[in-house]
Design a protein around this nucleic acid. Structure first.
Length: 210
DNA sequence: AACACCGGCAACCGCCAGCAC
DNA sequence: GGTGCTGGCGGTTGCCGGTGT
């Protein structure tokens, strides 16, 4: 997509809107020299008239090395779907399972593509004779407890709107927080996700065989 | 050709946790 | 313990291009 026109400044006279090529270069060069930490300092010292948050976002989502953009494969899509069923809207955790993908990209992909797909699927199911009772909503994981999460399935029709309404996890009914220690999460704490996905795959295979 | 509408996505915003002092 | 700062996260906004009428 064509970049947004870079216009307008914030209250404090900061640049806003789309990043220019020049700004990207400045930021990349500065980070290569000084590392990606202390974003506020980076924002000031690099001479970019941007806030630290904006610099961080730009770096993480676009300038970082080894970033993959676009062309989400079927495998990746499948993984996103399954991880979302498990984790809810915890995009950063989901992104952690997809090398080179960012939480922002996954979130956007979900909201624009997968959400609709699921809605369609569910509509089809709804039209079919209601043979199976919807299982009671499982409490989803919240970010290591705090932030009364956006995605407790209890409130599926509420805070998460159509997205959550589209998701009624039929086969997974447990409280992830009860089973896993989220204090261990992070790139090394994701083994349990791998294990879960393996188990889930086995489950799917078995149910398909039946 | 002109306009309206819609979808995709980059960027922003607000909230919260963790840390230092 | 209180306060301020910083970074991380998820939700939301708004621009732009594509498509339909």
């Amino acid at each position: 997509m064509a970049p947004r026109v870079n216009e307008g400044t914030s209250k404090k006279g900061m640049n806003r809107g789309a990043w220019t090529h020049e700004e990207d270069q400045k930021l990349s060069q500065f980070i290569q020299l000084h590392g990606a930490k202390r974003w506020k300092t980076i924002a000031i010292k690099s001479g970019l008239n941007r806030c630290g948050k904006s610099c961080r976002l730009r770096w993480l989502n676009y300038l970082r090395p080894n970033i993959k953009r676009g062309n989400i494969s079927n495998e990746e899509e499948d993984l996103i779907l399954r991880l979302h069923r498990l984790l809810g809207n915890r995009w950063s955790l989901i992104a952690g399972r997809l090398p080179g993908r960012t939480d922002n990209e996954i979130k956007n992909y979900w909201n624009s593509h997968l959400c609709k797909k699921l809605m369609n699927k569910n509509n089809e199911k709804a039209r079919a004779p209601a043979q199976q009772q919807p299982s009671p909503p499982a409490k989803e994981a919240s970010r290591s407890e705090p932030r009364e999460p956006t995605t407790t399935s209890d409130e599926n029709e509420g805070t998460n709107g159509p997205v959550a309404a589209a998701l009624n996890p039929p086969e997974i009914n447990f409280n992830v927080n009860e089973l896993f220690d989220f204090s261990m999460e992070g790139c090394h704490g994701l083994d349990w996700v791998n294990r879960f996905l393996e188990l889930e795959e086995d489950g799917l295979m078995n149910s398909e065989r039946r």
